[in-house]
Design a binder for these strands. Structure first.
Lengths: 352, 352
DNA sequence: CTTTTTTGCACAATCGATGGTGCAATGACT
DNA sequence: AGTCATTGCACCATCGATTGTGCAAAAAAG
């Protein structure tokens, strides 16, 4: 704190001040001084000087030299969504607790952007990368491979690297069963009373649709193709699909499965344009949990994906070294309507 | 793409391959080659080689040498919240469009963590820092100052650096007025029918409380102190405040102002434990917008803070160089109940 | 055919930290 | 006292890029 406003102190400055050589200073400050047989007194002296001058290592220089940066990346499709933002929150916490620095970036579900972003991260010599919800995991894999960067896929699997994903099939089954049972409380449900909206041509959507159809056939005896509306992941497209249905039928389906909370935003857009009565008695299942979504004025069953466990497993796999490109499933949980779960926010201290 | 699996190509590799010197290669690849009077043909040759070998600059080395890293940081309290995650989303987009690399980190509203995180960012030689919702902006300022790092405060103001914040007073006035008017539709409203929950001892909370009280006094004639319940920012504490009120009164206030969407989560926790009837006719104002929160089964007026504009202004201030520590206000907007706004997600291309 | 100017590039120092190697001083031991 | 092991540290090359400087060769001027 002595030299306010000056540039940051370096090991060379401390070397001058202490009379020791730069390498000695370096060793003291990075903890390797015992191995290097530095006298305890020397180490003390240097450490005191370092504190006094507020020394902090230049991590770019360290990274350049040691080709390890201490950075761990998380590539997200988007931030602006409870599932991914809570994943980011858990990720940060875990990375920090390992003494590394988290780096969260989004790539907007654009395969090219995904590759570009990863190239950039690689240029900063990040040590490890979590690829979450990538549109093209294998494309990203190749980029990582070339640079020798350890990585895992989260949420959407690739074929070339280990993946940790939600058990989408099982989750979809639970969710479908829950909404069917609930809808049946209001009277018998016919197959075309139950729709699925959202998702597109990715693994998660396929599995969810498969789970949905399995359960629907088992419980309702059939699943006409028209009941599956994979509208992609945009709220706008999803809203349009609801609108189209409404135009055709004068109401929404009695019950439906929404592929993600982003798609559920599409439902909000639809609702904004229509009076209460239009949806007074719908039953909704949403594959994703959102604390406010759970309290909408109709029953919303949700699936909470366990991103915390996915991150934990991801680290386990990375730590274990280059494993086979196996896909690990993490079981999600069914959240009944009107449920407020605790989340990463609760770990915060809130003084006062 | 020729050398798969090898280490990354460097300017030295390309120097060998092209027969030019490393400095020439460097100049060509960083665009300064015209200034350095490199022949067009040489430049072409080197650029072709670079493409062929998938060269990308080692940004740590570049950063070390030039002491500029191309990194721009955003320090958030938390990710897991629509306001901050959408801020992160806008931030990323703007940073990218300026050819820099966004770096979003959260510090959990912990002053010490805030400083530590910023120290780390500084060690990576980030070029600029946006400090959003910091508990101790001036503490962070000092750390930045010492390192000569350009920075602005967003959302919560400091006294030492330029700040860009929501016009909390005005926002709170709009919101308070809206809920009062709406509540009065159901019959006359007495001062102790209107409460405020959430927030703590920070600038934003003060301003919001001030705005609330101003309007409340003007329209209802009084504002008993008991109607202000600054419960901090945790959902759990907020839930407890609702619970306490409920125990005392057997109902919730007819109308209330909730300080943030995080506090609104506290309301959800309360609701989860009580039957529908308990809140059949409440009117809520929430200082923050959440698309699902807007469709809860009672009227929720919300304030949407314009984080996009805040970021834009932040860059303008940083670009203008070291300005005075002025606080700039950005006007938020009132969002009526049952409104689904578009957001950064809509900028995504959704193929199909 | 000189002299001057311009063109095109190579050289080398530098950013801050790391880690292998070598060497003097000290202590232990015969 | 002489040999050997140990201690404690300095020296120096290195990571990959940037940049000021210098100097040939080519072109222009005289």
């Amino acid at each position: 704190m002595t030299d306010i406003g000056k540039k940051k102190a370096t090991i060379y400055d401390l070397s001058m001040l202490s009379g020791a050589s730069p390498s000695t200073v370096s060793a003291v400050l990075n903890g390797s001084w015992r191995k290097r047989r530095i006298k305890e007194a020397t180490a003390q002296l240097i450490q005191n000087l370092a504190n006094e001058h507020g020394y902090t290592a230049n991590l770019q220089a360290r990274g350049l030299r040691s080709s390890r940066s201490g950075l761990v990346g998380l590539l997200l499709p988007v931030h602006d969504n409870r599932y991914f933002s809570s994943m980011a929150q858990s990720f940060e916490a875990q990375v920090r607790s390992r003494g590394q620095c988290p780096l969260v970036v989004s790539a907007c579900r654009d395969p090219e952007e995904e590759r570009k972003v990863v190239e950039t991260l690689i240029s900063y010599s990040i040590d490890e990368l979590f690829i979450a919800g990538a549109t093209d995991p294998d494309g990203v894999h190749k980029v990582c491979e070339k640079a020798g960067l350890k990585h895992v896929n989260i949420d959407l699997p690739g074929t070339l690297a280990p993946s940790i994903i939600s058990d989408n099939h099982e989750g979809a089954r639970m969710l479908t069963q829950a909404i069917i049972e609930r809808a049946q409380e209001d009277g018998p449900l016919s197959p075309d009373d139950l729709y699925l909206f959202g998702g597109r041509n990715d693994h998660a959507s396929h599995e969810r649709i498969r789970g949905f159809r399995d359960v629907k056939r088992a419980l309702l005896g059939a699943d006409p193709d028209v009941c599956i509306q994979p509208t992609g992941y945009s709220p706008a497209m999803t809203a349009r699909a609801f609108e189209a249905f409404y135009e055709g039928h004068g109401k929404l389906p009695r019950a439906f499965f929404v592929n993600s909370s982003i798609n559920l935003e599409g439902l909000m857009r639809f609702l904004a344009l229509h009076p209460h009565e239009t949806f007074a008695d719908i039953i909704v299942g949403c594959y994703d949990y959102d604390p406010f979504g759970s309290f909408l004025p109709f029953p919303v069953f949700m699936i909470r994906q366990d991103s915390e466990t996915m991150i934990t497993k991801g680290f386990a796999i990375l730590d274990a070294g280059r494993g086979p490109p196996i896909t690990h499933l993490v079981r999600p949980s069914l959240v009944p309507p009107r449920t407020a779960l605790t989340g990463p926010l609760d770990a915060l201290k809130d003084i006062e």
